[in-house]
Simulated scan of single mutants.
Amino acid sequence: MQVNIKTLIDDRQCYETVRELRWPEGCQCPFCDSKRVIKRGFNEKEPAKQRYACKDCGKRFDDLTDTIFAGHHQPLKVWILCLYFMGLNLSNRQIAQELDLDRTDVQKMTTQLRESVVKKSHQ
């Protein structure tokens, strides 16, 4: 029996973890830093992704707005698994095989993740 690792990762837990790491003191607007934020339902394509609205600046955002994970076609759990495999020092080819992705997609993902880590370490 062959098991696909993507089926073992829980979407809700990935988003809860992102929320906890991103906003340890509670959700705040990525545009104006206000804590006067209300929940506005969930994303239709990713039901674990919470949407919000800021009561101060009026802008809308979600759990991934203004993060390295925003605006990509791969779900959050795929990015998390990619990070995990990078930590195990797997090659892009091995990661692509494990996640059943195109190698060029994995190359783009790992490059963006590495650049983000380097950028964060220089701040």
Results as ranks from 00 to 15, higher is better:
residue 1 M to F: 08
residue 5 I to N: 03
residue 7 T to V: 02
residue 7 T to Q: 15
residue 9 I to S: 04
residue 10 D to K: 15
residue 10 D to R: 15
residue 11 D to I: 04
residue 12 R to Y: 06
residue 14 C to Q: 05
residue 15 Y to H: 15
residue 20 E to A: 15
residue 23 W to C: 10
residue 26 G to Y: 09
residue 27 C to I: 15
residue 30 P to T: 10
residue 30 P to W: 08
residue 34 S to F: 12
residue 35 K to R: 11
residue 35 K to Y: 13
residue 36 R to H: 14
residue 37 V to N: 02
residue 39 K to V: 04
residue 40 R to M: 07
residue 41 G to Q: 07
residue 41 G to E: 08
residue 42 F to P: 00
residue 42 F to V: 08
residue 43 N to E: 09
residue 48 A to P: 05
residue 48 A to S: 15
residue 49 K to R: 14
residue 53 A to W: 01
residue 54 C to K: 11
residue 55 K to M: 13
residue 59 K to A: 00
residue 59 K to D: 03
residue 61 F to P: 05
residue 63 D to F: 01
residue 63 D to T: 11
residue 65 T to K: 04
residue 70 A to C: 13
residue 72 H to G: 13
residue 72 H to W: 10
residue 72 H to T: 09
residue 78 V to L: 12
residue 79 W to Y: 11
residue 82 C to M: 07
residue 83 L to T: 03
residue 83 L to W: 07
residue 84 Y to A: 06
residue 84 Y to D: 00
residue 84 Y to T: 03
residue 86 M to D: 02
residue 86 M to L: 09
residue 88 L to N: 09
residue 90 L to Y: 15
residue 90 L to M: 12
residue 91 S to N: 02
residue 100 D to H: 12
residue 105 D to L: 11
residue 107 Q to A: 14
residue 110 T to I: 06
residue 110 T to P: 06
residue 111 T to G: 07
residue 113 L to Y: 05
residue 114 R to D: 00
residue 116 S to Y: 13
residue 117 V to N: 02
residue 117 V to P: 00
residue 117 V to D: 04
residue 121 S to V: 05
residue 122 H to T: 13
residue 123 Q to L: 08
